[in-house]
């Protein structure tokens, strides 16, 4: 096994071009498990943690550009007000130790259907910025996943960042696990409301070969919601939304749960998430700054 440690982003891209087989490692929360448990012996590993650019975020033309190496802890602390859906999801990732190390870039690179960041990124219609020595391109997250642990990246590319609009409205995330912390999703659901455009975004995790959107549910609920009067949706509307979300899933039976339960749970979570999002007090609808309790 060879260990590469580029000092700069340019060097990293050059190394990746020269060693397309190199497995990038940042927080190590996926790669190291595979190495430690002898599931994988990559020929080459490339450490991305020294590269400063990857740990930076900023706003460009109203869109957040967040480096692939920003940890979940920092997402919660620094961007929780602008990306509440992703922040709720980040809080469910592993433990403080994992959140200090784990990154959205790593989550995308692994492309597990159970990745906790994926549903909120899908719901918010985020983009992934891929880079190589031959240039940079942006891929919508909704087109990024191609199969279980597979994505549209080329061998010579690295994930530079993801881009997402600060929440234009309420966002929610919910995840079922069989213990009250530190658990991989049995299934998960993310919701993002865009009141100005009257759009609803969704993301489903761990209930299909890839993270999924519930496209029919999005269209249905966007048409049903009383965007102007803000009256709460009827129980029948919520139920129908839940049914459409469940129908969009393509779950299987596995060690963490059954397909039937996953569909059932998605219907419940999506109903609840919608009700919570819709009930968000008006001053929090814009995704603007909010006071957060001190602490952790």
């Amino acid at each position: 096994m060879e260990f590469l440690q580029p000092a700069t982003w340019e060097e990293a891209l050059a190394m990746k071009a020269a060693h397309p087989e190199a497995v990038p490692i940042a927080g190590g929360t996926d790669v190291m498990v595979e190495i430690n448990l002898d599931h994988r012996r990559p020929e080459t590993v490339m450490d991305l943690t020294p590269i400063r650019e990857l740990t930076e975020w900023g706003t460009d033309d109203g869109v957040l550009r967040i480096g692939a190496g920003v940890s979940y802890t920092r997402l919660i602390d620094e961007l929780g007000d602008r990306l509440p859906g992703l922040a709720i999801a980040s809080r469910t990732v592993g433990s403080p130790q994992i959140r200090n190390r784990g990154t959205v870039g790593g989550n995308l690179g692994t492309a597990s259907p159970a990745g906790d960041a994926h549903p909120p990124l899908l719901a918010a219609d985020a983009e992934v910025e891929l880079a190589s020595t031959s240039g940079t391109r942006r891929v919508p997250v909704r087109e990024f996943f191609t199969g279980p642990k597979r994505h549209t990246m080329r061998q010579d590319e690295l994930i530079a960042a993801f881009l997402v609009e600060p929440a234009p409205g309420p966002q929610q995330f919910s995840k079922v696990g069989t213990r009250n912390a530190m658990v991989i999703a049995v299934c998960s659901f993310a919701l993002a409301l865009d009141p100005a455009r009257r759009r609803v975004g969704t993301g489903i995790g761990s209930a299909g070969p890839t993270p999924l959107r519930a496209v029919d549910a999005e269209a249905f609920i966007a048409g049903e919601l009383d965007w102007d009067g803000r009256r709460p949706p009827s129980d029948a509307t919520l139920s129908r939304f839940g049914e459409l979300v469940a129908a969009a899933a393509k779950p299987i039976d596995d060690v963490r749960g059954t397909a039937a339960y996953r569909r059932h749970a998605l219907a419940v979570m999506s109903r609840r998430c919608l009700a919570w999002a819709w009930a968000t007090p008006p001053h929090l609808w814009g995704g603007g700054a909010r006071s957060a309790p001190e602490g952790l």
Partner: peptide, 27 residues
């Protein structure tokens, strides 16, 4: 209600750690 996440955990009065499902925000 829980509306989002902040530095101190959930934004909103619920203590998610006391709920079934915990911080996974299921109820």
């Amino acid at each position: 209600p829980v509306y989002g996440e902040g530095k101190g955990g959930a934004v909103g009065p619920a203590d998610l750690t006391a709920m079934p499902g915990g911080v996974s925000n299921t109820t």
